[in-house]
């Protein structure tokens, strides 16, 4: 399954809130909290497609991830393969509670970089695709183009 991480937040950690009320936090305590404590991090992932029998599909996956499935970052070659076509853009544009402009801009920038020298051309094509998909939704289009402007 392929997805885009669109939200990372750390739940309230009572111990850390208490530690900061003390006069100074020693290096040992800081390292203990950064390296030894399980921090309650939650990540939200927007599903945008899947791969089966070597073929990439830009449809929603046939089943959700199983408990304890491993999640890992895509390598450049996987990114390039998945983003050859733009069918998965609709999942991002239709995402509920997703900062569409920011997620799309960040993704397009990352996918463009994965392509190396061919990145600029791909970014232009992707931007054109976004304009086509949002031609009837002016406010969202302006918001997305504003975010994309920051990456150009």
């Amino acid at each position: 399954m392929y997805g885009l991480i669109h939200d990372i937040h750390i739940d309230d950690d009572g111990l850390v809130r208490q530690l900061v009320t003390a006069d100074g936090v020693s290096e040992e305590v800081m390292k203990d909290n950064r390296e030894r404590r399980i921090v309650p991090v939650e990540m939200s992932v927007l599903a945008v497609g899947y791969e089966q029998d070597g073929k990439v599909h830009h449809l929603l996956p046939p089943r959700p991830p199983l408990s304890l499935d491993v999640i890992y970052l895509c390598e450049d070659k996987d990114m390039v393969r998945f983003t050859e076509k733009f069918g998965y853009f609709r999942h991002i544009l239709n995402g509920k509670d997703v900062p569409v402009g920011e997620v799309l801009a960040a993704h397009i920038l990352q996918a463009g970089k994965a392509r190396g020298a061919d990145g600029t051309r791909w970014i232009e094509s992707a931007t054109q695709e976004v304009i086509t998909l949002l031609r009837d939704d002016y406010p969202t289009l302006m918001s997305v183009l504003g975010a994309l402007a920051d990456i150009s």
């Binding site: 111990l15 208490q18 530690l19 900061v20 009320t21 003390a22 006069d23 936090v25 020693s26 305590v29 203990d32 030894r36 404590r37």
Partner: peptide
């Protein structure tokens, strides 16, 4: 105990062990 701040003084290491 001072590590735990001003309101809940308790040895930090014992708290972490419990956690």
């Amino acid at each position: 105990s001072k590590i735990m701040g001003n309101s809940q003084q308790f040895p930090y290491l014992l708290h972490r062990a419990h956690e």
